[in-house]
Nucleic acid binder design. Structure first.
Lengths: 305, 305
DNA sequence: AATTTTGATAAGCTTAACTTATCTATCTGC
DNA sequence: GCAGATAGATAAGTTAAGCTTATCAAAATT
């Protein structure tokens, strides 16, 4: 940062530009109107550019001023908000969590109450984002993603998941031996979305099982999210190829069964990325530990076949 | 804003916390170390809270300090960046445009060069977002969405689109009379996604055409985006139900034909939302005019049947 | 053990930031 | 059209926020 102009000057400009009058800005900052006038003149000199057009004892923002105002407003608002929280007697830490959209919707939001219960209250912002996420612009504290993107930030592999067939118990009557076990059952295809472009399809599963898929692997229902596919499976509409994280719970409590044991490990692990700046914050560390635990518990052991 | 503590004090704190040392902060801000020490002490007194733990002639950030540092860093960076742009001899205006993901990918990114060519250079950030979008956090200047969300910001209806069947010219050989024209053709189903939850399906189209859809309306290919559906149609794999904006161009240049004339108007118009703060910026106004024009041209007249 | 480094504190100085006062152009209400 | 109010510019003088230098002490470094 070289030769930053006076912060007070910029603050005066911001207030004057936002309110549209030097007088109003003076009132807002509890100083005299003359002070505002001088500060802004100084900034204009330092910048070498007019920020206001003086016309008829009235001021209108110059183009440069119009362009820059929103960003300054945001910055000063953030500073004000930080100081207010800091001077209050207690502050709630903020935690910005980003996960793939499919997780944000059901899986994580259902479990989040558990974290809030076991740790203190925090202002948690849960975001469903596809990679890549803008860590700095959004001040994201922790990101869960499939595979290690973000070489520029410390990243750890959490757990390697697998996909395997699941269906409702009613459907499992038709099961024969592994391999062509699924011959008669309707298949549910999942459109994994951008996050899971490399996820196995039914075709891959049949290949791994050493079975000629026949026509079955092409037809059937399809859903455009893991979540939707699972719901269809639970409703008994077919066999879905599901990730352990999402379905292990339902398998354990009996809503789903595994008509065939073969699982295909995903090519990459789930990864946790925490930018340097957030790594030392207590909430972030606590959330990291909690999340890793939840992920491993969710995947469970049954996935490993 | 009541009793904001000294901006310089916060700036000193930010630099010291980020670099981890008063001495380094002093160097960065080109002042003496004593100045930093005093400024930070003052801020701590005003806040009524320690920001650093003094231990052994060394300082470590307090919890409060750790929590607040990233936000302050971002705010001061933004201020620095604004001033640098302002004091440079020319500044490129920033323009943050948000559209539904399906538009960001192909439709808009292909046309954007046209805007850049006809107007000056600008730092354009093109975002594909689902509604609702966080106008203020992201400083979005202009948002195109399907239907009027955002009552809190000035919003205008741009154009009402329609969906109609399109297919590759090779497929159109099998066309009979309107109505059951599509009887023999494979249908491509589109998963409109959250943006277009209310978009018409093939079932709706057949109903509007007064034809019993039979089994055809249920089977066939499906794609999880308008874009993908159109690509399939152009490849000759079937008839897609497409929005005018996306397909009018391909219809005009002959890559697609309309095997049946009936179109269904969408329930809502495309809407443009521009928050107050951005409404007076030149780039924003120019982009608004350009975008409206592009949308209307893209929809074209053939949609209106 | 000597040297360097880092932060705290004190005393005093500089000047950015502020106030008050005065002036002028414009708008408002009769 | 004329008082009165209003908004900003400018000048001159004041204040205190912010700065420096100097000194000290604890630790780390050599």
């Amino acid at each position: 940062m070289v030769a930053l102009p006076s912060l007070k000057g910029l603050q005066a400009f911001e207030a004057a530009a936002r309110t549209g009058s030097f007088a109003a800005a003076a009132e807002e900052l509890s100083v005299s109107a003359a002070a505002i006038s001088q500060l802004i003149r100084t900034v204009e000199e330092q910048m070498g550019r007019k920020l206001f057009h003086r016309v008829n004892r009235r001021v209108v923002l110059s183009e440069a001023g119009v362009e820059m105002l929103p960003r300054l407003t945001m910055a000063f608002q953030e500073i004000g908000s930080v100081s207010r929280e800091l001077s209050g007697d207690a502050f709630r830490p903020r935690l910005v969590v980003s996960v793939p959209p499919s997780m944000a919707m059901g899986w994580l939001s259902r479990r989040l109450a558990g974290f809030v219960a076991s740790h203190g209250a925090a202002d948690i912002s849960l975001r469903g984002d596809d990679d890549p996420v803008p860590f700095d612009r959004e001040l994201i504290d922790i990101r869960l993603s499939y595979g290690p993107h973000y070489r520029e930030h410390p990243t750890e592999e959490i757990v390697r998941d697998a996909v395997y067939p699941v269906c409702a118990p009613q459907l499992s009557g038709m099961i024969k031996a592994d391999g062509d076990a699924l011959a008669g059952l309707p298949l549910i295809h999942t459109d994994w979305g951008p996050t899971g472009a490399s996820f196995p399809s039914w075709r891959n599963w049949f290949e791994a099982a050493g079975v000629e898929p026949g026509r079955a692997a092409q037809r059937g229902l399809s859903a455009n999210s893991s979540r939707a596919a699972l719901d269809l499976a639970i409703s008994g509409l077919g066999v879905a190829l599901a990730q352990g994280v999402y379905c292990a719970e339902a398998v354990e409590d009996g809503r789903l069964v595994r008509p065939a044991a073969r699982a295909i490990a995903l090519r990459q692990s789930y990864c946790l990325t925490i930018p340097e700046r957030s790594a030392r914050r207590d909430v972030v560390v606590a959330f990291r530990d909690w999340l890793i635990n939840e992920c491993r518990r969710a995947v469970g052991s049954p996935a490993l076949c």
